[in-house]
Design a protein around this nucleic acid. Structure first.
Lengths: 171, 171
DNA sequence: CCGGGTATATCGGCGACTTATATAGGTTGC
DNA sequence: GCAACCTATATAAGTCGCCGATATACCCGG
């Protein structure tokens, strides 16, 4: 580790003048700040990050087996069983039996659970809309808007790579 | 994951043709995906998100009091005391007494602690650099690069607002 | 030097993970 | 058509990291 020259980031990648397309160091830093700013609201909110993530997944992908949930959220299967039990007690999800497989359990979000996901999303949209409208210039807003498809693509790549890694057993 | 069934919000804001500058809903969705993809590596890594965040803060802002740390990380003061105790036992930070205030404790990151922060950052940069280089088009990379200053600004605004809120006691 | 505020520590408890293992249902080969 | 194996979920026991309440030590103004 002491063998690392210039242990912080290499300032700028020497893409070559105008060829330089993207500063990965700066992108990393910015995404990290977003994460640090977004997370750590579980104190404020009533549910943990994992809980909200499960509700989100179920809301967007329909009823899933416990094993499918285990793969998406990065926790172990017993943890999912417990989490679903808690959510069920709160009336946010319900267990159904899989008609084609007696071993499996399908977890479906209830209206109350979907409501939480939507309310949370709505709050975040509102907050971001206000911040961008009040704090950013029109030019900045346009620059972000123009980058949104590319950012969405990048997020997809990150998720895909994570799944790939899990599949290979790098847990 | 790429195919998000759009849970049910007002699709697009009716900014009015070319006046529309930024789709806050889509921005929210993308940032959320980044968070979901970035977090949940504590299984992979040896330290929790909070731990890494504290090391990050100490690395970038120099020795801080416990109370200053408590304000930055979104956890309570006893939790910070414990966390610092753990980090101290691992040799990642050290406690110093504040020369001007006998009650206060200054927490400073050690070389070993800084090394962890740097190594983690380096890994993330490497991963993002590879993903963007291999998975994105040159046009996409340029679009993200052009938006980076605006995104950094937005991240600053989010952090500032969070501190503001905490100061008002909205915990 | 005393009373009230501030900075950190300690205590008891709990929630949300973990690993290891149990149970029940499904699948396959012979 | 059943023994052996595999898969899906559940349970058990332990750990870790957080919280609220409270204790302790120090600072400061009158």
């Amino acid at each position: 580790m002491a063998t690392t020259p210039e242990d912080e980031q290499p300032a700028r990648q020497p893409w070559g003048s105008e060829q330089r397309e993207l500063d990965a160091g700066e992108l990393t830093r910015v995404l990290g700040e977003f994460t640090r700013a977004s997370i750590r609201l579980p104190g404020t909110e009533r549910h943990s990050f994992t809980t909200l993530s499960v509700l989100h997944t179920l809301t967007h992908r329909g009823p899933l087996r416990l094993s499918a949930l285990t793969e998406n959220e990065q926790i172990t299967q017993p943890a999912v069983t417990q989490l679903v039990g808690r959510l069920e007690r709160e009336g946010l999800v319900e267990r159904r039996s899989d008609p084609g497989d007696g071993r499996a359990v399908l977890v479906a979000v209830t209206p109350a659970g979907a409501r939480i996901t939507r309310a949370r999303h709505r709050d975040r949209v509102r907050r971001l809309a206000r911040l961008t409208a009040e704090g950013l210039s029109a030019e900045e807003r346009r620059a972000i808007d123009a980058a949104l498809p590319a950012l969405a693509h990048l997020a997809t790549l990150m998720t895909a790579e994570r799944e790939e890694r899990r599949r290979r057993g790098d847990r």
